[in-house]
């Protein structure tokens, strides 16, 4: 186990180094930068600014500077906001995390329940209707569902706010504030859950169908166990095992924000920030964010490997 971890960690460092170089090159080699977009500046002033920001230095030297600082936990300053990149992340990322964590939990929970029931009653009317609805939900683009729900619940019925995280001008605190945020996040969470539900339900349904055909399920029934025990003690655990791979991938998704949902619902999350920074070519922020996702992805895969070890006695690390 420990030799596995050491080997695995050294791979992770190599992968992240390679990723950092790729990420840096991608942004650095893209024509134009934060300064070239500003038409108010004279060419002399632009050259002067590039000198100040260090943008005129050779590529390799700039990479090493960025990387060296990053290793010390310093991802530089956002050019547009003139604040440390990490400080800005901290302002936005938790808003995204809030949406993601709630919708991910709901998605998994509902997908497991519906998937298991649909598999157990394969080809029944319940199964057929569920599969139809899921196909429908998967086929409609997120911006459409988002706008559609806003039209119905916010514009027509005034049940829920159309966007934002708090009511404009509100200075509620404590429980009132929490309630306000919950009301604002209901629609975006609903849309995100709806979008993720389809593929995950189908995944659990097919896993469960496979497992229910296994010999050990027949044994469990031959022992005279209740169907509930057969399903939840014997089948479900085996059906959930392959999903551990997906758990690893959820980690970057939890912090990565959602470009489209956050834009539609005007949610002050990292996805929206990312979109805005793209327009401004705020490269330090973009590089920092991409690197952050790379780190999370690598940690996520390590996490799912370790989880496998915990959940499946046949796996040895």
């Amino acid at each position: 186990m420990s030799t596995y971890l050491i080997r695995r960690l050294s791979y992770m460092i190599l992968i992240l180094l390679a990723a950092s170089f790729l990420i840096f090159s991608l942004y650095a080699l893209t024509p134009g930068d934060f300064i070239s977009g500003n038409i108010k500046l004279t060419p002399e002033r632009k050259a002067e600014l590039r000198e100040i920001y260090g943008l005129s230095k050779p590529l390799m030297e700039r990479y090493l500077t960025w990387m060296g600082n990053a290793l010390h936990g310093d991802f530089g300053y956002s050019l547009a906001q003139q604040k440390p990149v990490l400080t800005i992340f901290n302002e936005y990322i938790w808003n995204s995390f809030l949406l993601a964590v709630v919708s991910t939990f709901l998605t998994w929970f509902i997908a497991v329940v519906i998937g298991v029931i649909a598999a157990y009653k394969q080809y029944s009317w319940f199964d057929t209707i569920v599969m139809l609805v899921i196909f429908g939900a998967m086929s409609i683009p997120s911006f459409f569902i988002g706008l559609f729900l806003i039209k119905i619940f916010a514009v027509d019925f005034h049940w829920l706010p159309p966007g934002g995280m708090t009511t404009t001008g509100s200075n509620a605190t404590g429980w009132a504030y929490a309630l306000e945020v919950i009301r604002h996040m209901t629609l975006p969470v609903a849309v995100m859950t709806l979008l993720g539900l389809g593929s995950l339900t189908r995944y659990f349904r097919s896993n469960m169908i496979d497992v229910l055909k296994q010999d050990y399920i027949r044994t469990a029934r031959a022992k005279g166990l209740t169907e509930r025990k057969v399903l939840f003690t014997h089948a479900l655990r085996n059906a959930l095992l392959p999903a551990i791979t997906l758990v690893g991938f959820e980690l970057p998704a939890l912090f990565g924000g959602s470009l489209i949902i956050e834009s539609i619902f005007n949610w002050p999350g990292i996805g929206q920030l990312y979109m805005k920074s793209f327009g401004l070519r705020d490269y330090p922020l973009l590089m920092g964010f991409t690197m952050f996702l790379a780190v999370l992805t690598v940690i996520g895969t390590l996490l799912s490997d370790i989880l496998y070890r915990v959940a499946d006695p046949r796996v040895k690390l």
């Binding site: 010999d215 655990r237 085996n238 959940a311």
Partner: peptide
Amino acid sequence: MSSLNPVL
């Protein structure tokens, strides 16, 4: 080999 549940 396949008649017993592998995770129990």
